[in-house]
């Protein structure tokens, strides 16, 4: 697993470079971010702006939610963020960010343009880039966040709880034989068939939920699939990131030729909120549990949180039920 080793390596770099309290020089500390940039930080970060919704969630998971002074306009979780100022991230509203006088800006190359660093450097605002290629990157991201914002202990506990919950879930699905693992197609759009290609952590989530993601080998990282691809691949399950109220009949209206696809024939089209799968943050655990229950209703029953053991930091989410009961 190269992703894992890179993640660990970065973590070590961050750990060794980032623990300012070990160094006698208290004036400032430098860390290396996921884009290999050296970032100079104030000894303690009090005011930070998050430029991506998953970073906001990770900051809360790391016990550092109170350091956030502004988040992006698409940030909507956890509930306390509703009272924070929202700034535009696409494109970045530099003036609004600078007006918050942050000690640190949090960004991720999934959403933010690495070229924007120059503008922040010109404004003398440190910016730290995260990169989430794997599930492990999410876990280490929580720990890194703790080190950046000075809540190492809480972050380590939270990452450990998430890790053990995911491991517990995986332990239950590992025993499922290949023949019983449904072939899953994860779709972002229902009309235009955006999906996840090679190198996405989403395939890991599907695997942990006891399925096999069929787009894991597509060269393109963000492929747009054709109707005929889906016909040829015959997925057993279609998992759409279309929100909890999706009507699966719409899928057949949009793609009438799919009446022979097993997922539609057997009523195994499920929809989950986008943010539980496509937002690399602590709530992917909830998304994966939801998925496990959809894929294997015989093995997993009851509420999603009872699958594996509940993590300490999990906040209640109002809308996590699949649109169709299997």
């Amino acid at each position: 697993m190269t992703h894992r080793s890179i993640g660990l390596l970065l973590l070590v770099v961050v750990l060794t470079g980032g623990c300012g309290d070990a160094a006698p020089d208290e004036a400032s500390r430098t860390v290396v971010d996921d884009l290999d940039r050296t970032v100079a930080l104030a000894p303690s970060v009090r005011r930070t702006v998050s430029l991506a919704p998953n970073l906001t969630e990770i900051a809360y998971a790391a016990g550092a939610g109170d350091r956030l002074v502004a988040i992006t306009s698409s940030g909507n979780y956890p509930p306390p963020v509703d009272t924070l100022p929202h700034v535009s991230a696409l494109p970045i509203d530099f003036e609004a960010v600078a007006a918050q006088e942050p000690d640190l800006v949090l960004a991720t190359d999934q959403i933010n343009a690495p070229g924007d660093t120059d503008t922040f450097e010109a404004l003398d605002v440190p910016i730290y880039f995260f990169s989430f290629g794997s599930v492990n990157d999410i876990l280490s991201g929580i720990e890194t966040m703790g080190q950046l914002l000075g809540t190492e202990a809480a972050a380590a506990d939270s990452a450990e709880a998430l890790r053990s919950s995911l491991d517990a879930l995986r332990a239950r699905t590992d025993s499922i034989p290949d023949a019983k693992r449904p072939r899953v197609l994860v779709l972002v759009g229902d009309d235009t068939l955006y999906s996840f290609g090679r190198g996405s952590y989403v395939h890991t989530l599907v695997e942990a939920a006891g399925g096999t993601s069929i787009t894991a080998d597509i060269e393109n990282q963000a492929p747009t699939l054709s109707d005929e691809y889906v016909l040829q691949e015959k997925p057993d399950v279609i998992l759409g990131l279309w929100g909890p109220d999706y009507d699966p009949n719409r899928l057949l209206d949009l793609h009438p030729t799919w009446d022979v696809v097993p997922a539609l024939q057997n009523d195994r089209v499920f929809s989950v909120p986008t943010s539980l799968i496509a937002r690399p943050g602590p709530r992917v655990l909830r998304g994966t549990r939801l998925l496990a229950r959809s894929l294997h209703p015989d093995r997993f029953s009851g509420t999603p949180d009872s699958i594996g053991h509940a993590p300490s930091s999990s906040a209640p989410s109002p809308s996590t039920s699949p649109s169709t009961a299997p």
Binding site: D227, E228, L231, K234, P256, T257
Partner: peptide, 12 residues
């Protein structure tokens, strides 16, 4: 084959 039939006749 129904799959090829759909691809050829109803998509392409």
């Amino acid at each position: 084959d129904p799959i090829v039939d759909r691809i050829v006749w109803r998509l392409r």
